[in-house]
Design a protein around this nucleic acid. Structure first.
Lengths: 125, 125
DNA sequence: CCTTTATATACCTTGACACGTATATGCCCT
DNA sequence: AGGGCATATACGTGTCAAGGTATATAAAGG
């Protein structure tokens, strides 16, 4: 598994990354949202972590995973020489998504799992 | 081989695509520039063609391969939701490359076009 | 402590795919 | 027509990665 491209070739891993794009998630949350067996999730997370796509912090028995930017930048960097094939289209997409972002960022999500004020004092491992 | 990501997971295929980013190439030209055996090139080109990354036209006994944009756009489309992780960096890259483009395209006042006006009357297959 | 919850790892099996070698197809030229 | 060049395909083989099942580690809470 030498290159970032092999990492994102696996559909489940792409799904995990997409989930993490919105916010950090615990293994269990990923497991439930993507309906995949826990060992599968853990194994893919390991691959992603070793490739630098994600990092994790410990919150009690849970582990919270979040994205790291560098490998994705590497993918994009490879695409840049081809940009005359896609740049126009992406600009349009970005404008569209920017509008959506504005619309949705105003509503916040109600947190659960309080268990004492201000949980999630994570220690990184 | 269901997704575009599996297609570009293979390093030789990425190399071929990068070659074709500059201009169309025959199988033999690819073979020589990338120093890979001819059957390997042909097989990878087949995969790329069936996935829509390239198309070919016939020029006598040779086949000229060139890029098609759609699959690359698909890759980029997947990356868009992650763009806060890389957009700044790509903008910089693009500005830099744009300057390089300007520098080289202006130099090209005198065109080349050898071998009798308008060679390569390809028929698509 | 003992149990429950959360996550990680080990082992095995299976299937896909990339490669090498050999051969087929097809076009050009004399 | 026949030989040579350019490209495609067929076949056999080895490797490696993904999934399933079982088990290990570790923290929490009663």
């Amino acid at each position: 598994m030498e290159s970032v491209f092999e990492i994102i070739a696996e559909p489940n891993r792409r799904a995990i990354l997409s989930l993490l794009a919105s916010s950090q998630q615990s293994v269990g949350e990923i497991e439930r949202q993507l309906r995949m067996p826990q060992p599968t999730v853990s194994k893919h997370l390991r691959v992603l972590r070793e490739a630098g796509f994600v990092e994790s912090t410990v919150d009690a028995q849970r582990r919270l995973y979040r994205l790291k930017p560098e490998p994705l930048q590497e993918v994009v960097a490879w695409l840049v020489p081809f940009r005359r094939f896609w740049s126009a289209r992406v600009d349009a997409l970005e404008r569209h998504l920017d509008r959506m972002d504005e619309a949705t960022t105003t509503k916040r999500k109600a947190r659960k799992r309080p268990r004492g004020a201000n949980r999630e004092r994570d220690k990184s491992e």
